[in-house]
């Protein structure tokens, strides 16, 4: 009985060990690790992992050189004498977070990546990009698309770039456009905020909060495609990098 258990534990140990030793992380490892990172780590480290001075997790810069095994230990046990706490992750989950950190660093270090200029990006956002037509930043612009005031605290640069190049790739449930047609033919388009068996709650295209009875609607449903245009042809690579830089710096209101 004990021999079998020993073999079992050893097998699991080997599985984890080889995962670490060979850095053979799968896309699923990275995805799971990203989810854990966003839930547990971004409060202190920020979405790019660079919110703590001298540490830039997203670029693989730590206070000293750490192996993957070191990082797993730190994630689980914390660093005594620092604000880095111990966490209740098992070894496997901690390993997926390391997989995500390594993947972030690989993303950031990809060849040909351009440095962006946030000031130029801000001008492009307001001007050529016409982004305020749908988006709002610090009280300016439309509410029909997502408010971007804190987007830099929630999303990494590569994710923002992907959203601009391919807006249909991922639309969060709270950002889906919704279309309803009343029994008298009136069309209402907006963002679906909430719904139940009998009603829907929308922010319509005229910034009005609307309560609609489903029994008063002839048609209702999500709009299949994202209303956001793809910026692949509208911005060149440098402009894209500039806007991403601007968005990455949007980390909330400038509170006194």
């Amino acid at each position: 009985m004990w021999r079998k258990l020993f073999v079992l534990v050893l097998a699991h140990g080997f599985a984890l060990g080889s995962l670490l030793a060979q850095h053979s992380y799968t896309p699923a490892d990275v995805e799971d690790g990203g989810r854990l990172f966003r839930t547990n780590c971004t409060n202190c480290h920020g979405p790019n992992g660079d919110a703590i001075p001298t540490i830039d997790l997203g670029r693989g810069r730590f206070r000293q050189v750490y192996s993957d095994t070191d990082l797993v230990r730190i994630i689980r046990n914390g660093i005594p004498g620092t604000p880095m706490p111990a966490n209740n992750f098992d070894e496997f989950r901690a390993t997926t977070i390391v997989a995500y950190l390594r993947s972030m660093a690989a993303d950031e270090a990809r060849p040909g990546a351009l440095a962006g200029d946030a000031t130029r990006g801000k001008a492009l956002f307001a001007g050529k990009g016409e982004c305020f037509t749908c988006h709002r930043v610090k009280g300016t612009g439309s509410r029909s698309g997502p408010d971007l005031t804190e987007i830099g605290a929630m999303r990494r640069g590569t994710e923002l770039e992907r959203a601009m190049l391919d807006p249909d790739a991922e639309v969060l449930a709270g950002n889906r456009a919704f279309r309803a047609v009343a029994t008298d033919g009136t069309e209402i388009i907006g963002t679906l905020l909430n719904q139940d068996a009998f009603s829907v709650q929308l922010l319509d295209s005229k910034d009005r909060l609307r309560y609609l009875q489903k029994s008063d609607l002839r048609e209702q449903g999500y709009v299949a495609k994202s209303p956001m245009p793809a910026y692949r042809d509208k911005f060149n690579a440098q402009e894209l990098a500039d806007v991403v830089s601007y968005l990455s710096n949007l980390k909330g209101l400038d509170l006194p």
Binding site: H12, A28, D32, D90, F92
Partner: peptide
């Protein structure tokens, strides 16, 4: 999703996500 798992008394013992 299946993940490795080992029993420790009083700890979560689910082997997946």
């Amino acid at each position: 999703i299946k993940t490795p798992v080992k029993y420790e008394e009083g700890k979560s013992f689910t082997g997946g996500m």
